[in-house]
Design a protein around this nucleic acid. Structure first.
Lengths: 156, 156
DNA sequence: CAATCTGGTTTTAAGATGCAACCCTATTCG
DNA sequence: CGAATAGGGTTGCATCTTAAAACCAGATTG
């Protein structure tokens, strides 16, 4: 049964998930962020079936998250590189990593340690923040009434 | 063919996706953040098949993202409410929304307008930030060598 | 030339999905 | 009181998705 696709959705989150919400897709993006570029490396690192990896890479390329570059070695050597659109998934992936670290940490993986290349200092935790940089939870925010999704009341 | 599950993964992102990476799961969380609580409302708002919604809600409850509360009306009326763990997905969902707004906006949906409840001011964009609050892209950060995933070089 | 590199493509069986019908308990209303 | 409604499921079925494994084809190398 074909999965419902959210192409025509009025919801940006749904549309985003349309492009990166397939099983494996965000992990591929994550590994691309680590620097992985070649088909065989993605495959080995992720332990993904080749046909599925092909499919996901093709989708990510089609959606502009990755671009496929012909490196010209060994007759058919390609690299898959993040586009700007792909790199803009950085906060998504980091936020997800933090969430995982907090609520379901991997046994042998410490918490995320990411440093500012310029200063060597740790990055701030990715949070929703107010104008002054203070962290906000979902209870601290509201959506102005005119911008609510259809049928929603302000009870967030 | 059963999808590969990442329960034993050494990667927190994979483990996180194990819990919220199924098709529909994050959209359910999003709607819960909007305040949706009842089965029939999730179903109608999302346009999801009842059996799939049942499955996803059960998983989210099992994983501690939602809790199922017996409201005691009409014999079997339940509400599904976000736990703290669920609420901590807020930055993930907002980051995803921003990404969607920027790269594949919904036709009739304006960009995210979320306000600080205390001040009415707009929230900051969710970004990876340095210690001083300046935005960082993936090119601006590095992982210390001792914390790299296996086999990764510092070429992010 | 055979072996290797490279990124696929194809086959097949088991799961996942969505649609629609059905189910069962509790409550409400004519 | 019985029918209708509320509520949250459960089931059957056809179709799509997935993973494993085998196969493929062009280019390169020893």
């Amino acid at each position: 049964m074909a999965r419902k696709r959210f192409d025509d959705s009025q919801c940006s989150v749904a549309r985003a998930l349309n492009e990166v919400g397939d099983w494996w897709s965000l992990l591929i993006v994550l590994h691309a962020m680590y620097g992985t570029r070649r088909f065989v490396d993605f495959q080995q690192e992720l332990g993904i079936a080749k046909n599925i990896l092909c499919d996901r890479l093709a989708r990510l390329v089609e959606n502009g998250v990755l671009r496929k570059v012909d490196v010209g070695e060994h007759g058919s050597r390609f690299e898959y590189r993040l586009t700007e659109k792909g790199r803009d998934l950085f906060p998504v992936v980091i936020a997800l990593r933090q969430w995982g670290d907090k609520w379901n940490p991997a046994p042998d993986q410490g918490p995320l340690d990411l440093r500012d290349r310029a200063t060597g200092r740790p990055i701030q935790e990715v949070q929703v923040r107010d104008a002054d940089g203070q962290s906000l939870s979902i209870r601290d925010v509201f959506v102005p009434d005119e911008n609510l999704p259809a049928g929603k009341k302000n009870s967030a």
